[in-house]
Design a protein around this nucleic acid. Sequence first.
DNA 1: TTCGAGCATAAGGCTTTCTTGGGGATGGTG
DNA 2: CACCATCCCCAAGAAAGCCTTATGCTCGAA
Lengths: 299, 299
Amino acid sequence: MIEARHLRVLRAVATTGSFSAAGRELGCTQPAVSQQMKALEASVGTPLLVRNGREMRLTQAGEALVRHASGILAGLTAAEEEVAAIAGLRAGRVRLVSFPSGTSTLVPAALAALRAAHPGTRVSLEEAEPPKSAELLREGECDLTLAFRYEGAAVAEDWDDLVVRPLLTDRLVALVPERHRLARAESLAIGELAEEPWIAGCPRCRGQLVEVCEGAGFVPRIDFATDDYPAVVGLVGAGLGVAVLPQLAVESVRPRGVRMVRLEPAVRREIVALTLPDLAQVPAVAATLEQLARAAGRG
Amino acid sequence: MIEARHLRVLRAVATTGSFSAAGRELGCTQPAVSQQMKALEASVGTPLLVRNGREMRLTQAGEALVRHASGILAGLTAAEEEVAAIAGLRAGRVRLVSFPSGTSTLVPAALAALRAAHPGTRVSLEEAEPPKSAELLREGECDLTLAFRYEGAAVAEDWDDLVVRPLLTDRLVALVPERHRLARAESLAIGELAEEPWIAGCPRCRGQLVEVCEGAGFVPRIDFATDDYPAVVGLVGAGLGVAVLPQLAVESVRPRGVRMVRLEPAVRREIVALTLPDLAQVPAVAATLEQLARAAGRG
DNA sequence: TTCGAGCATAAGGCTTTCTTGGGGATGGTG
DNA sequence: CACCATCCCCAAGAAAGCCTTATGCTCGAA
């Protein structure tokens, strides 16, 4: 079985014309070259070199091998170069999945920084809500995902097999119309909104809302539900009800005719980046993760 | 530095999807595969495989490497195949150099046998007289050469650095016109022809002739000289003189109007095949040499 | 829960490969 | 003509690499 190392040596011998010179070129001693060539000749079963007097010539078999060697070694070099580019962040692609409010806040900042630091890397972005995102990760459909979990949620997602990197802690805020009686409050308990009509967000947030309200002893009357955060804010601004949203989600929307009031006691959600243990070792993934942490102020 | 062995293992892992299966395919154990992959990942500096649960997936770097691997391994296989063909006498070329009377006798028989035994091999044939032929060998211009030397010649060629394979012993015969007074002799001493006009052959043979005559105490009167053996025979047949030729040279010519008479004491020349020590190990050269020996009756 | 399959790791033995040191041959040079 | 530099081969010892066996752990299915 011919080895690449043998071809390298053979080529060096063929170009330099001597074992000693080849050894110097390859950074090893002349006997090493001599033994390599002997081993190669033994493995192919025919002489490759003819030594006559001082000069060294290739046999026909040697010429054939040298002829092939250039292509093989070029392919090897190209492979090494491509992998080195990926390892060295001069190339490489990260498939990132995020949830909407993360996409509009953390992600843009992180990707801008990533591009500035490593212009060769590419990031593809998909959106998915947490229960789905970890699944995509496990199925190999993405490399890195932003997810969140509410503190003390009834059913916590199982991330034991993943690398969990906390990015920041978000908290829920109440959104009330500007003229609402609680619009000027410093903070409020969610129970104070028990009788209000509600505007709910995404399905998961909606479940979380109901769970929190349950803890406060009431069932919210949900008049509207939409995935669209600006729409939620707009509906509240129009006086159609109140809402509870993650602060991060509100930040990406220009509030108009609404007031944000802190909830007390606070309901927090932890925003994390998830990846597979092996993928965390991939330079491009690690770099993206790092920029996400930095964008979240936890670099 | 990526090694071909690594690529083979990686490819097996990629196609089978597991280390164990790759090990079975490659005929080694699972830890061997595991260690190889670890070494490869270390050498390229980035993970190539992502293990998640039971399944094994390639990273982008791994995909790149597998993509290159097919071409590289195909090149290696092609190289091995070509060299194996040369080693196995299914291909290969021998550059043979011979002197004229060898070309017309030994060589055709040997090459016919070689072709029958190994149809893939090719022999290129050039003609050169002995002093030149060994030189061509040493200069790498040919692989195998037929040469001869006269027994007890004044200046023997130095073949110490060559492989000398004796093929057969030729002897000089006298050529006289059919009506010559010695035409019916069983044998003759060269001195008996001292007063005859001479027809000489090639320059080297001419030198040899003069040397032999000198030993017999006379200087031949050379009326004609030509490289062309049939011409020599023709001139003798026309009664223009006598000649001394190697028996082998005469055999290839239809004698017409001449008689061959054995010389006594015999003047012998040894016909040998010459090659370089390393070239004697080349299968195609060895096979050709063998057929030459066989054609000469010394197989 | 148990079982089978698969991967990782460690230790031991074997093979390979390198370096060093010495010997022989070649070809140019004083 | 002898000397010297260069280059190759060979042998021995040390170092590194590789493979195997044995063992433990995880995962997924019955």
